[in-house]
């Protein structure tokens, strides 16, 4: 029998009820599929919350809307629903592929879109049992004052591993819809993440992610690929989403975003300079250079940062080539 901290579980049925519950219970945590939060609670990671707010019965967090170039996905949609939706597979294949690649099938049946966007950052010094972390005097991410990955660092290098954020980041106008005590607001997806592995989300304590929306220009070909230790279940060692526009034999547009490497999903800067000509070896070499300079994988997994940075480049080149060559 597992002994977990005492908490009260609330089960609101609307976003307004969630906001009210959050206002009455500061320090509460939102419970979605539980595949991230419950694992951490069981390991004693994070302060034990006095209240859990179960979001699984909130009707206004459900539903996928596809209209023209736009998609809007409720935060309570399960990963499985997103991966299997025929409209998503037809019009947003990169997003569907990213969703279908998350963890394993049972996890996808439990986990939600909001949970994957807000996935806690991960590190071998953090995702450990209480006694393991205590023996290492904890770390910057929780309970300690040193980063074991980069001892001189003042920020935490725990890695963001969500697969949906990069797949959305290569689309246009990706935005997060947020509900808070003051009402609703939208935030560009890019601004949701701070880049510090400790306080990795730019959400206020009272705020809830309600939905995400984005737009795919008709000519944009999208895809997703990643490497894992165990192909059927693990978090990505490196994951890449790509958006490619081909005009004749010319590379007209290129977007790339990575996960599993940095403390935030990384939209690769400078790809526009690679566009305008053929997709030849010289362009691929310059693409590799961009990846080497911007992908900052640290030793936050049992696989070295060097390997993950290299794998990120290989995955990116393969995926861009595949999308460009698809007829």
């Amino acid at each position: 029998m597992n002994v977990l901290p005492e908490w009260e579980l609330l089960a609101p049925s609307s976003v307004d009820e969630v906001r009210a519950a959050r206002a009455h219970h500061p320090g509460s945590r939102f419970l979605g599929g539980g595949t991230d939060l419950v694992v951490n609670l069981r390991r004693g990671i994070g302060d034990p919350p006095a209240t859990l707010i179960d979001l699984n019965r909130v009707a206004d967090l459900k539903g996928i809307e596809v209209a023209g170039e736009w998609i809007r996905i409720g935060a309570g949609v399960t990963i499985r629903e997103l991966a299997q939706d025929p409209r998503v597979r037809a019009s947003f294949p990169g997003l569907a592929a990213a969703a279908g690649s998350i963890a394993g099938p049972t996890h996808r049946n439990m986990g939600t879109v909001g949970g994957n966007l807000c996935l806690d950052t991960r590190c071998i010094y953090y995702n450990q049992s209480e006694w393991w972390r205590a023996a290492n005097r904890y770390c910057l991410k929780y309970g300690g004052d040193i980063c074991h990955v980069a001892p001189k660092s003042r920020i935490c290098y725990a890695t963001f591993s969500g697969d949906l954020a990069p797949a959305l980041a290569v689309l246009d106008d990706a935005q997060i819809e947020i509900a808070g005590a003051q009402g609703a607001r939208t935030l560009p997806l890019d601004s949701l993440y701070t880049g510090d592995g400790e306080r990795y989300l730019a959400l206020e304590p009272d705020e809830l992610v309600v939905a995400v929306r984005a737009r795919r220009p008709p000519a944009l070909r999208t895809g997703y690929d990643k490497v894992r230790v165990r192909q059927s279940i693990d978090y990505p060692l490196a994951g890449v989403a790509a958006g490619v526009v081909r005009e004749g034999d010319r590379l007209a547009d290129l977007r790339l975003a990575f996960t599993g490497t940095n403390p935030r999903p990384l939209r690769l800067a400078g790809t526009e300079d690679l566009c305008g000509g053929a997709l030849d070896d010289a362009v691929m070499e310059r693409l590799s250079g961009l990846v080497r300079r911007q992908v900052m994988a640290m030793r936050t997994t049992f696989t070295s940062g060097h390997y993950r940075r290299h794998a990120a480049g290989v995955l990116a080149r393969r995926l861009v080539r595949r999308l460009f060559d698809t007829t």
Partner: peptide, 23 residues
């Protein structure tokens, strides 16, 4: 006991769920 192995899988409303991560 941490959501990685599937030994605790049960069906909830007909779909597989990890009972070790479900309250």
């Amino acid at each position: 006991d941490g959501g990685e192995c599937g030994a605790c899988t049960v069906l909830v409303d007909g779909a597989p769920v990890l009972s070790c991560l479900t309250l």
